[in-house]
Design a binder for these strands. Structure first.
Lengths: 218, 218
DNA sequence: AACTATCTTCTTGTATACAAAGTGATTGAC
DNA sequence: GTCAATCACTTTGTATACAAGAAGATAGTT
């Protein structure tokens, strides 16, 4: 696992938290991780602080760093905010979007469709992210774009699960087409509502998934 | 200036950036600041990293830390996002808000009115922030609340200038009353629009201020 | 005289050493 | 036998020492 540099370590740890190497509440031992990465404690502590600022870790003074996975309630809240953020992006983009960008959206959608037909959820997810990121960009507000990308990244591991559901990719595609149609006609409200609903569906799916798991556990 | 602990240093530096001790683009010398605060470079670097994550400083590898004040364009973008965030808060709060919280808003508004009559813009600003923060809280979404508070904090020094304008406090008060009325009647759309407009006004005021400065400089 | 290359110096990034605080275990007293 | 207090050990926080890279100056060449 020999790897250098503080920011790379943060990315590696982030990935390890996402893929389940560390569970919620796990304590991240500085000296242990430092020797695993082949560095000293200094850059590792820097990495932990970066993870804290992106919300994946809580740093308790004199106690250490603990993995902090958002619980069901917080995830729902984050999905709600994501839906509203994307709705704002869509509303702005409907007025400001160029024809080239609209074409870009359609092309991304075609690639989504191919991925859907191939039942390749990984590819679908990648193209889906590009679809959404294009709308963020076309909001014409780069601060909004950055904030949206940040939240998108944070919700990535949870959004990804949604696509495993049977028929979800096809439904998602249909929603994408409605979004493109609204953006093409320049209808701000329709675009905002379409995108809000599109994201909200994922939050609700997630909610039912959590409810199912809870029921199975009891 | 002798002061201890990394997080306190971050707050002090933040304050120094806000009050103009450091100008935009200034390089923050680690050793110089370290001895000014009476600590070593280690906690000071930690503070700089915190400031980077909150957007007040950019860390260029092997080059140093530089103060990063948002320019006019970025500020307008941030005001636009703030307006939309608060609109979302209002829309959610209109449905979820308790009677106690509504009473809290009215009381905050009364204190705003007293501050306005006393022409005390500092007091007005403090009470105004509480008014807004109450709405964030009553959105019932603590993630949204936290994000709104973060952006509110970041825009604080710029919002504050607005109140110096003649008649702005009185106008702001009138808008507050419209917001309370919409929230009381539970009208989500009216509340969202009222709050969006209320914040957007500040962004536009800021824009005209910047335009004025620019014209005066040329 | 101007441009380039190298060397020196200054600054950042990393490692290690040290100090302080917290946790747990062991021992003593009730 | 149980509870509490003290002591030891573990772990975080900070300082210092060291390494590496970037900027600037000086000298040499064209």
């Amino acid at each position: 696992m020999e790897q250098r540099s503080a920011v790379n370590i943060a990315n590696s740890l982030e990935h390890m938290i996402f893929d389940g190497t560390f569970a919620d509440g796990d304590r991240l031992d500085e000296v242990r991780l430092a020797e695993q990465f082949g560095v000293s404690r200094t850059p590792l502590r820097e990495a932990l602080q970066r993870l804290e600022s992106s919300g994946l870790v809580t740093l308790i003074p004199r106690r250490g760093a603990f993995v902090r996975q958002p619980g069901p309630l917080e995830l729902l809240e984050m999905f709600e905010v994501m839906a509203e953020l994307e709705a704002v992006c869509a509303r702005l983009a409907a007025r400001r979007m160029s024809n080239e960008a609209l074409e870009e959206l359609r092309e991304a959608n075609i690639r989504c469709q191919m991925a859907s037909e191939a039942q390749d959820s990984d590819l679908y997810y990648a193209e889906n992210e590009r679809f959404h990121a294009t709308i963020y960009r076309e909001s014409g507000n780069s601060f909004l774009e950055q904030e949206s990308l940040k939240l998108q990244k944070r919700l990535r591991p949870f959004r990804r699960q949604q696509l495993r559901f049977r028929g979800r990719m096809a439904q998602s595609l249909t929603e994408h087409e409605a979004i493109v149609a609204a953006l093409t006609s320049g209808d701000s409200n329709a675009a905002a509502n379409a995108l809000r609903d599109h994201v909200t569906v994922q939050g609700e799916r997630f909610q039912s998934l959590m409810a199912g798991l809870k029921a199975a556990a009891s």
